[in-house]
Computed example of a mutant assay.
Amino acid sequence: MPELRTDRLLLRRWRESDLEPWAAMNADPEVREHLGELLTREQSDATVALMQAEFDEREFGWWALEARETGEFIGRAGLDEVGEDLPFAGVDVGWRLIRSAWGHGYATEAALACLAFGFEALGLPEIVASTTVNNLRSQAVMRRIGMARDPADDFEDPSVPEGPLRQCVLYRTTAEMPTG
């Protein structure tokens, strides 16, 4: 599993010490506001096991996100295959941070590193990102990293029950589009 480094971040393999702060993130209603139900510790641990297995299989996926200055685990960022139940295909870029890391540009910095890896190392022709229509913070990151939205691509997530989390927006970028 390759590590990615930016000026302030290390995107690395998951460690046992990440499980507790990851579980705390998944139990935080503000962090989960646009993601759905809170996760139990067992559910949270299972997501890490799945992320590691998928990374080992595909050679890309979700990295643990660490602040280089402090060594603190601050979330995850990475690339993932779009689910078959969605009305589009490809590879998705995403991020999730602990609340104390919000507003410092870490999501943008991590996402740009993931895009560079996707285009340069994996040779992807396009990378997408999606979120709920009300998740304005993530949409702002998508715009900052050079992604564009066509409202005709907006969709309802079939895996989500009726409600505010079902309506989603889709952003796209290619290697030729300017980033950051």
Results as ranks from 00 to 15, higher is better:
18 D>I: 10
62 W>I: 12
21 P>K: 03
139 Q>I: 04
69 E>A: 11
55 F>K: 01
146 G>M: 11
58 R>W: 14
146 G>E: 07
11 L>F: 12
63 W>R: 02
169 V>M: 12
39 L>F: 14
101 A>W: 07
81 E>P: 00
44 S>R: 09
106 Y>C: 02
88 F>C: 07
141 V>P: 07
8 R>V: 08
177 M>Y: 05
90 G>C: 10
155 F>I: 09
108 T>N: 06
128 V>P: 00
177 M>L: 13
88 F>H: 13
64 A>L: 11
11 L>N: 07
168 C>M: 03
67 A>D: 14
57 E>P: 00
149 R>F: 13
164 P>A: 08
115 L>H: 12
154 D>I: 12
178 P>Y: 02
84 E>H: 13
7 D>C: 01
141 V>L: 13
106 Y>S: 01
1 M>D: 15
137 R>H: 15
164 P>V: 05
50 L>N: 09
22 W>Y: 13
91 V>S: 03
88 F>T: 10
75 G>F: 01
105 G>K: 07
82 V>A: 02
141 V>K: 07
66 E>L: 10
2 P>I: 15
117 F>M: 02
25 M>S: 09
54 E>I: 06
3 E>C: 10
95 W>S: 00
12 R>M: 07
153 D>I: 12
114 C>Q: 01
126 E>I: 04
37 E>H: 15
130 S>H: 07
172 R>S: 11
149 R>G: 11
114 C>P: 03
6 T>I: 06
72 E>C: 05
12 R>N: 05
135 N>V: 10
166 R>Q: 13
64 A>H: 05
19 L>P: 00
1 M>R: 15
70 T>Q: 06
76 R>N: 04
110 A>H: 06
21 P>F: 06
125 P>M: 10
138 S>H: 04
125 P>R: 12
11 L>Q: 04
74 I>L: 12
136 L>R: 13
93 V>R: 00
178 P>Q: 07
163 G>D: 11
160 V>P: 01
42 E>T: 14
21 P>C: 06
8 R>F: 03
80 D>W: 10
48 V>F: 11
122 L>P: 10
56 D>Y: 10
165 L>C: 01
75 G>V: 08
179 T>C: 09
153 D>L: 13
11 L>H: 05
9 L>D: 03
137 R>S: 14
44 S>H: 09
57 E>Y: 06
45 D>K: 03
143 R>G: 08
148 A>W: 15
39 L>G: 02
142 M>P: 01
135 N>W: 10
3 E>I: 12
74 I>N: 04
172 R>F: 12
25 M>E: 02
120 E>Y: 02
146 G>A: 08
165 L>Y: 01
163 G>K: 04
180 G>D: 03
156 E>P: 00
138 S>I: 08
6 T>F: 04
113 A>C: 05
3 E>N: 14
140 A>Q: 13
139 Q>K: 08
117 F>I: 04
119 F>S: 06
3 E>Y: 13
164 P>Y: 08
34 H>Q: 13
3 E>G: 08
4 L>Q: 05
167 Q>R: 15
61 G>V: 09
130 S>V: 00
27 A>P: 02
129 A>V: 01
5 R>V: 07
98 I>F: 00
138 S>P: 05
14 W>L: 05
28 D>Y: 09
177 M>C: 12
116 A>S: 14
145 I>T: 12
59 E>P: 00
